[in-house]
Write a protein that binds this DNA or RNA. Structure first.
Lengths: 220, 220
DNA sequence: GCATGTGAATAGATTCACAGCG
DNA sequence: CGCTGTGAATCTATTCACATGC
């Protein structure tokens, strides 16, 4: 619409931090703090002040020199930019332990991303109720996506089911997918995919733990 | 010990990918594949071949020119490097939905990181059994860490308990911590901390979803 | 005066492209 | 000849440092 509000390309690394700032700003608002400096926000987010300023500058010039950022206003702008205004529905596919945990996880659904449907392919699970939602069968996916305006799919199935679920989600029109299954899946170019691999995190940590141990031993 | 085996500094980005290669190599071994090229491994891991070669080169020169990498031998070297040989015990603190899911999650504990203890601070949960382990009280942490040779702590508590749990883990001698609580925590320099924030992942995805929607609309 | 916003400098990661070796 | 291993080139992200404007 407005040609003045130039649509900058926001670096990936910045996108990953914006939600962190958002959370801290929300807390500041709850504490009725009116303005915040880049330095204060940096401390809360665990980064340095220059990074905060550069990150926020991609959204626009919403700060006031000599003063800082108005919490309320900055949140308003971030909500728009992060798309937290539009309440995008989430479907969780796979209701094993992880899927159930995600369905129950308060953080999911808290800010702008209500869990709108739960889906599994086992007859034993279909019909049960998790976190106030009936678990529906995978084959109903298309209708559910339509009916509940679902924009995001979360995959919490075993690894070998992941690609099939991705294909079904894409077919149903979902363009954003969060994959918890430890499996590489492929999507068309116009679909955004992120993956979280819990076991991987442990192994990465294990590597540093190991290094630490070895290095300390080597000093002897 | 051996001064020849120079202790290179491995880039963070590489460390994060090594476990991915490891998983794929394990699968290749199961399929009784003897050797693999950087290109094949790259396809499996979803990266490009040059990256695979550079990453693996930090471990040493374990490939054979004109041939590729011997799966078995490369795995052996990676196990050493990733510290998967030493079976480091894991304690999960906080047995709400997420903690229980993690305790039950097969991936956790699968490769070299057995779940050795479960801890909570609610009397209601202490004494219950999750995934074959008695849930113990947080105050027993020190003894449990000693007894089960625990090297890694996983925090799955509410945000406001996270810093207290971190302090207790550090006090008990744990030097590697994986934090699932959506809260910035601080640790001494000699402790490695990683964080996974599930709600954050959704928000990042939501951002791209939103952008996509807005940009497409703008074309009209 | 004080904190933002941003060019310029630095550091880090990815990719290229090819020499070197089996 | 084919594939690894790696310097060099490129791209991305972080940090510095200061001019700018409230």
């Amino acid at each position: 619409m407005s040609p003045a509000n130039s649509r900058r390309r926001i670096p990936e690394a910045t996108v990953a931090r914006l939600p962190v700032y958002h959370r801290n700003l929300s807390q500041l608002r709850e504490s009725e703090v009116a303005t915040v400096s880049s330095e204060q926000l940096a401390d809360l987010a665990g980064v340095n002040a220059a990074k905060v300023r550069k990150d926020l500058s991609y959204l626009g010039s919403y700060g006031t020199r000599g003063v800082g950022y108005e919490v309320e206003y900055l949140l308003f702008q971030m909500d728009r930019e992060l798309g937290l205004a539009d309440e995008v529905g989430v479907v969780i596919v796979g209701l094993g332990n992880l899927g159930q945990a995600l369905a129950n996880y308060a953080g999911f659904g808290a800010r702008g991303f209500p869990v709108a449907a739960l889906v599994d392919n086992s007859e034993a699970k279909v019909g049960t109720v998790v976190h106030g939602h009936d678990v529906r069968h995978l084959r109903e996916l298309d209708q559910l996506v339509q009916r509940y305006n679902i924009g995001i799919g979360v995959i919490a199935t075993p690894a070998d089911a992941a690609q099939d679920v991705v294909d079904r989600l894409v077919h149903a029109g979902v363009r954003s997918i969060l994959n918890f299954a430890p499996m590489l899946v492929s999507v068309p170019d116009d679909v955004t995919l992120r993956k979280v691999d819990l076991a991987l995190e442990l192994q990465i940590l294990g590597f540093y733990n190991h290094r630490e141990t070895v290095d300390v031993a080597a000093e002897a």
